[in-house]
Design a protein around this nucleic acid. Structure first.
Lengths: 255, 255
DNA sequence: AGGCTGCAAGTGGTCTGACCACTCTGTATG
DNA sequence: CATACAGAGTGGTCAGACCACTTGCAGCCT
């Protein structure tokens, strides 16, 4: 035993898993869809014939995976945002095995590079159209960094959809999100949005032309550039774990 | 708001998050390490000055992310297995956006292909040695499919370590795990372990020679072959979600 | 009338303490 | 010596109470 990473869920916590199953089914058969509000805990619990605490255990599981969004005093909602992929586990990955921020960038570059190349082969007219739209919006909001960022993210998201592999898309979403967390501080200051826009346009053109090699190259160039921009700071922390010094280094995230 | 995939964790559930934080810190400063057993819930709760239910809420979060392994009647342990990356969320990704099993294979092929190429550039003598060992073990257990599989998985894991990017490794681990879940049924029957071993040997040689292109090609060939083996069955279910027919199709997983 | 204030209902978050279910170990029994 | 069993330790579930946050509506003040 203990060989592979076999059973991710858990045989234990039967009751909680019943909740999870129930919700998964409701999602599959369309009873509930993203954005929907779940019944109040007390009511839902009695409906399922379990205690509120067990129900909460199940909901907690779903919330931990980002599938549910629970708002205190309001209710629980099926997540609307594109499904991520355990992004919340990144800080722990760090704590356990340690990783350099560069690794995050590298992973993203590899993933999105491939995504771009797939998009070149599989994109539809509709996706191209959406990309073009976001591109325009980006140009329009070129001096509103916050607004700009939104369209930037959307652009990448559309490319991922065009690639036609929702798993890759979810992974990308997850990496992007993690990166966003870390970058949040610097991101609003770096300026060359004109350059950034140019890169995006290159990517768009390459995908439209159906050239997967060029698309991939364009995407990688863009991301490499983005990483360089973000690195201006002190020079990424060395990230040596064995040091043991309690300096705490004020870490990466958390304001 | 609601723009990007900003804050994966949660501002709510303060108490539960305190537990999460506490454990993360304990992992970071080495107080606890993989395999360690956590204190009994009752005791731990009072140590943290919170109720057992809140504690359990936090532990549930960690367990959901695969960071903790809780065994009924025994205790909670820090996961020893290579950290995954939200593999448990795959079934929900399916429920929400739907995906074809081929997409899983494709994602893995892309990821591991790159991992192999990186490994070729970065591997150390030690990693090569470990790969060689597993290779031997595979040959030795060639007529014990179950045993063989263990070394198969380990081989891939070592390659991932050799690639020197723990994030990519975690993602791979996650995809592999998901695939393993689905394949469990067929996997023990397909036989050509001799062929499989040859593929692995090719990968090993390519990495050892430091040729990233060849390594990647070898890995991709191996995985393509593996996918083909698994597809022999009825021909992968069409996976059309809008059908609505309650046939249930007996789905992919679940024995 | 318009805007602000404050209360109350609805809902998630936490606490307590009891009891159930599962594991493991050490002892008594055959 | 091997098996069966009892007990301790620990996680899982339950119940009901109370706290904290949101929201909207009613009433008040200007």
């Amino acid at each position: 035993m203990s060989n592979t990473a076999s059973r991710p869920p858990a045989a234990d916590r039967q009751t909680a898993m019943r909740v999870v199953e129930r919700i998964r089914e409701a999602l599959e058969d369309g009873t509930w869809k993203p954005g929907d509000k779940l019944p109040p805990e007390r009511e839902f619990a009695s409906t399922l014939g379990i205690s509120r605490s067990s129900l909460r255990s199940g909901l907690g599981y779903l919330a931990a995976m980002g599938l549910l969004q629970v708002r205190h005093g309001v209710g629980a909602f099926i997540s609307e945002a594109p499904t991520q992929f355990g992004a919340a586990s990144l800080p722990f990955l760090d704590a356990l095995h340690g990783y350099d921020i560069h690794q995050l960038f590298e992973a993203r570059r590899i993933l999105e590079g491939h995504i771009a190349s797939l998009a070149a082969e599989r994109t539809t007219e509709r996706h191209l159209q959406q990309m073009a739209e976001e591109l325009e919006e980006m140009e329009a909001s070129i001096d509103q960094p916050h607004e700009y960022l939104i369209h930037d993210v959307r652009f990448h998201r559309i490319v991922a959809q065009a690639a036609g592999n929702s798993i890759l898309a979810a992974i990308m979403e997850s990496l992007t999100g993690a990166l966003y967390e870390v970058r949040r501080s610097t991101t609003e200051q770096i300026a060359d949005l004109h350059v950034t826009t140019k890169f995006h346009r290159d990517i768009y053109r390459a995908i439209r032309s159906g050239n997967s090699r060029t698309s991939r190259a364009a995407m990688e160039k863009h991301l490499t550039n983005a990483e360089a921009d973000d690195d201006l700071p002190p020079k990424p922390k060395a990230r040596k774990r064995s040091v043991k010094s309690k300096t705490k280094t004020s870490a990466t995230a958390r304001s």
